[in-house]
C-alpha cells in the first residue's frame, strides 16, 4: 500500500515539478550551506546512530542505520 501511495505521490510531484522552481540567478538563498538538505555534518551521524540503537525504525533521510551491533 505504501509503495502505491508513494508512486502516485511521486508521479504527481514530478508532473508539477516542471512548473515550479527558480531561475539560476535566484539561487542566492538556496546556495547557502545552511539551506543544504543535510547541513549538519557529523551531528547527523550522531543522531542516526543514537536513534538506530534505541528505536525500531530507521532510514528515510538516507539509507543509514546498520553498521554496528547496537540494534
Amino acid at each position: 500500500m505504501i509503495r502505491k501511495v508513494i508512486l502516485a505521490l511521486g508521479l504527481t510531484l514530478l508532473g508539477g515539478c516542471a512548473h515550479v522552481g527558480v531561475k539560476p540567478w535566484q539561487r542566492d538563498i538556496l546556495a547557502r550551506n545552511a539551506m543544504a538538505l543535510d547541513s549538519e555534518g557529523n551531528l547527523s551521524g550522531y543522531h542516526d546512530h543514537i536513534y538506530f540503537s534505541k528505536e525500531g525504525a530507521t532510514g528515510g533521510r538516507n539509507a543509514s542505520g546498520g553498521g554496528c551491533g547496537c540494534n
Binding site: R27, D28, M35, R61
Partner: peptide
C-alpha cells in the same frame, strides 16, 4: 525540488 527562493523540499522512499 526547489519550490521557491526560500524553500527546497525532498521526498525519499527507502
Amino acid at each position: 525540488q526547489t519550490l521557491a527562493r526560500f524553500w527546497i523540499t525532498q521526498v525519499n522512499f527507502n
